[in-house]
């Protein structure tokens, strides 16, 4: 009984230890750092990065690009999602364009963006373009989910359209918008890093990823990847906390 309580309390810790052990065993079997560095080499590199001022400047710039792309896509995704959700003709007009954006390979978009923008803005533009369809689609789905019975009630009481949008459609769409924002934020981290690798802005995680590939510093590559995962997880949790706080203060 006591053991099972202890196990459940430290469950996540044991899971992490298990996978690090698997990683260690695999790296011992492969025995070539260029393919798979050991956990020790990776954590040593991560430790070194933690004491380098440049690491924090780089994280700051990459975070700025990721969040800027994410916030712009949220803004336009929600606004245009509402417009399209309320008006079928505008939806029909915009839908093919969004479908194209959704299917175009991210690499093509990055390369096109490199032609159009200066290096630091490329990741912002790519993050915007990749996140926008998610938030746009979720907003439209949320509007479609508005309860017809509530809309009928609004019609009976002659509620103005603007107030129906604010009080019925918005609240119906809110859970969908929140879910869209959470998945868009994760994607934003991934595509921003990818865009940085190709556009190579001065301070960017992508540039460090690229350099570690060029100079075959594979532990560095793993360290920066761990940093991206940690940042992405942190911001996802932060976003969820903000949503929860909003719920209680509603």
């Amino acid at each position: 009984m006591k053991n099972s309580i202890l196990l459940s309390k430290y469950r996540n810790f044991f899971i992490i230890i298990f996978w690090i052990t698997v990683w260690e065993i695999l790296s011992l079997i492969i025995n070539q750092e260029i393919y798979l560095p050991s956990p020790f080499a990776t954590f040593k590199s991560l430790f070194d990065l933690m004491f380098d001022k440049i690491t924090y400047i780089t994280i700051l710039y990459s975070t700025y690009r990721t969040l800027t792309g994410f916030l712009i896509s949220t803004f336009f995704g929600v606004i245009l999602g509402f417009v399209c959700g309320m008006n079928k003709s505008i939806y029909n007009l915009l839908n093919p364009l969004v479908s194209i954006i959704r299917t175009v390979p991210v690499m093509s978009i990055i390369i096109i963006a490199i032609m159009w923008f200066k290096d630091t803005n490329v990741p912002v533009f790519v993050a915007f373009l990749m996140c926008f369809p998610i938030i746009w689609t979720n907003t439209i789905q949320g509007i479609a989910s508005a309860d017809n019975k509530l809309l009928q009630m609004c019609k009976i009481y002659s509620i103005k359209k603007t107030r129906v949008i604010k009080s019925v459609y918005f609240y119906s769409a809110l859970p969908y918008i929140k879910a869209g924002m959470v998945s868009a934020l994760g994607i934003s981290w991934k595509v921003t890093s990818a865009a940085e690798v190709l556009s190579l802005p001065k301070y960017s995680i992508g540039r460090f990823l690229y350099d570690s590939k060029v100079y075959l510093e594979i532990p560095d590559l793993f360290s920066w990847t761990i940093i991206i995962i940690l940042l992405s997880t942190f911001f996802e949790k932060l976003l969820k906390k903000i949503f929860e706080a909003g719920k209680t203060n509603d």
Partner: peptide
């Protein structure tokens, strides 16, 4: 018109007061 529906049809995200205020 006003209408008492079979089911209450209230806005779940508003308080009782605000549901009346809404109309």
């Amino acid at each position: 018109y006003s209408y008492v529906f079979q089911e209450p049809r209230l806005l779940d995200w508003y308080s009782v007061y605000d549901n009346l205020d809404f109309v």
